[in-house]
Write a protein that binds this DNA or RNA. Structure first.
Lengths: 115, 115
DNA sequence: TATTAATGCATAGCCCAGCTAGGTAGTACA
DNA sequence: TGTACTACCTAGCTGGGCTATGCATTAATA
């Protein structure tokens, strides 16, 4: 997978994952790996800086938790983060539609009860 | 539009456009603008370096033509370029599907007589 | 008759996000 | 004892898309 494609969608996917439930770095990588059909192996060198960016930007907050002798840093989405997530989702759908337009790929999105 | 999203799809879209017919820089920007539903205004600082990269890589060849007092540099896709295009198209479809998977967006692609 | 917009090509250098590579540390199992 | 997995972090590289700039012609407009 050409990693350049990932540019711009990493934060979107992180926000999406933790919007469902607070999660920590390693678990986020596993969730994304799973939901992407084993496509995306998020690298630590991308993930942690992204999480720290999101925290600095106020889109997420964090707290430490100790379980089974393992320290985990949980991240949860903030109200501001939810708005950013919604905007990024729309941006992604629009972007993907535009690329597909150039490629002559027609698409139909099945959203909720939409069909 | 977050320009980072464009990373990795620019060459794909260029190859796609010139695979339909040889084209030149300015015309490529207009075609992409049009087919993307006015979403993508390719910048010259991205386009020309990308075209030169593709030419150096052997994916495209070029020739100059003079029309109405305007010199235009036409680019056409090579046999190697067609293979790269096919690979990049598949990579894009796979990538978009994976992102949509993470976002919980189901999709159906309408390809040719596929439906 | 200037001036602006549009058409057309090109490059130097900035920016920044994802990467590699390295570090630390606990648990589980062979 | 060593390997694999879990779990966090950061310094510094890389590369592609960007801004800004330069050059040149044609068409429209003030």
């Amino acid at each position: 997978m050409n990693h350049k494609l990932l540019s711009g969608t990493l934060e979107l996917m992180i926000l999406e994952v933790i919007s469902l439930a607070p999660s920590y770095g390693y678990e986020i990588t596993q969730t994304v790996l799973n939901k992407s059909g084993e496509s995306f192996e998020l690298k630590e060198g991308s993930l942690y800086p992204a999480l720290h960016r999101l925290e600095r930007g106020g889109q997420v907050t964090s707290f430490w938790e100790e379980t089974e002798g393992r320290r985990r840093k949980y991240y949860q989405i903030s109200a501001a983060g939810k708005k950013v997530l919604e905007a990024k989702r729309k941006e992604w759908v629009s972007f993907a539609g535009a690329v597909n337009g150039v490629l002559g790929i027609e698409q139909r999105l099945l959203l909720g009860d939409d069909l």
